[in-house]
Design a protein around this nucleic acid. Sequence first.
DNA 1: CTTGGCCACTCGTCTATACGAGTATGCCTC
DNA 2: GAGGCATACTCGTATAGACGAGTGGCCAAG
Lengths: 262, 262
Amino acid sequence: MAALPSGILGALDPTSDRAVFRQIADQIREAIDKGRFKEGAKLPSESELVEHFGVSRMTVRNALSILQSEGLVSSEHGKGVFVRPRPPVRRLASDRFARRHRDQGKSAFTVEAEAAGSKPEVDSLEVREEKPTPDISARLGSARKVLARRRRYLLDGRPVEFAVSYLPLDLARGTQIAEPNPGPGGIYARLAELGHRLDHFDEEVRARMPSPAEVKMLRLSSGVPVISLIRTAYDTEGRAVEVCDTVMAADAYVLAYQLPAN
Amino acid sequence: MAALPSGILGALDPTSDRAVFRQIADQIREAIDKGRFKEGAKLPSESELVEHFGVSRMTVRNALSILQSEGLVSSEHGKGVFVRPRPPVRRLASDRFARRHRDQGKSAFTVEAEAAGSKPEVDSLEVREEKPTPDISARLGSARKVLARRRRYLLDGRPVEFAVSYLPLDLARGTQIAEPNPGPGGIYARLAELGHRLDHFDEEVRARMPSPAEVKMLRLSSGVPVISLIRTAYDTEGRAVEVCDTVMAADAYVLAYQLPAN
DNA sequence: CTTGGCCACTCGTCTATACGAGTATGCCTC
DNA sequence: GAGGCATACTCGTATAGACGAGTGGCCAAG
């Protein structure tokens, strides 16, 4: 069975002290890097690799699991193992919350996505009052209760981002901010109407591997990290009026910042 | 013989259709999250887990490899499997290249690290002329040849960051920028002396899993992503005078940006 | 032509076993 | 006491086999 995968893959070096499964992973990685397997292409099946390299199946699976954890390939039950295609990335410019972008009726996400030719969706919208974690509370100037707005963003049906905004309850309660649809211009426009003119944002960027819940929520394939972005919005009085905690699929985003040099 | 690990870990649910090795990973993950295993603590050995859960060793190893790829634990040959301690993170402020930080003799990295009480080192310094990749060339206004300055940064002996600066060769050749030690204030001070007053920086932030070379270079344990930061520096004429390509161990960094809201 | 089922192929899970290699400990010898 | 060795533990690597489950194509029955 199993026609040989042809000369795309090299041979093992028995004299090397590098573990066999690592050598196999190296071979396949190199073949992918050099374009001998293209994006989305199917790798030889496990049994073909077993035959080609003359090792046991677990050894081959071990090799493949390395590549999977590197985010290079992903396996599909019943079909095969495929070179992971790079999805188009969404570029987040640092000025996307500038006032001039805020007059139209649509959210920044919607406008940007449509400009890029993708179909945006917002999902699992949930607004409720909560007791904040100590961290969120501290960022909001020791707020005791907050309004939490949760939502998930999708691009062409693929979930790419999950965000929770926290606002001090005394500020948001009873306003349109507490409604699922905060109205044209989003919550920043409403904050402005309430007399909170925005002054600046602080953003903290981290990267890490996702929790199982995040894997599920963002349908992440293995080997894809997440970017965690925590943004705090301050008004001209210096009060923190919103903290937004965002988790993004790292393979879907590039964050772009412009910084003055002085 | 392995004494039982005590009641820290629960039991499996044979009726569940969740794979046994996932259930074991869930149990251990939960125990870590709830603090029943503390940072740096040793988990029960594989053979103890085999006994506790009544499964084969491969199943236990499978479970542990999940936790490892999540960055939760790391194994040490001959010793055991340990809850991965969170190293202290270095905070990169968006004003770290502001002119006012540039007058002393030391580099930004050194000053910051010493202020935080860590011992900074710079390593594998290498300066040479190169033909740039198409991407770098494009960022530098189609430069045909560039000066590349490579270096690795360590904190208390741990490598945390690897950076390459590219400068157009016509600008840097023969200046102190082409020397291993660029002098007080670093290359930005030298650029200023050459009449290139810095105007602003563009930064692009990405996150992904490291390549094997990066794992080696940054001594990354598995399950730790990298942050890739590409910074382009522009002078007041609008010319790109430097591109800096940085790869950081994601568990060692928080990037902080401050953005105006107008 | 359509439908249903069989079958061949894929990867997923699990067992049992074996040996190698790194680490720590304690004992024994010098 | 110091050094070195034996040993018992740890995880690392690899084999061989078994069965389960998802996918898709072929073919025969309707």
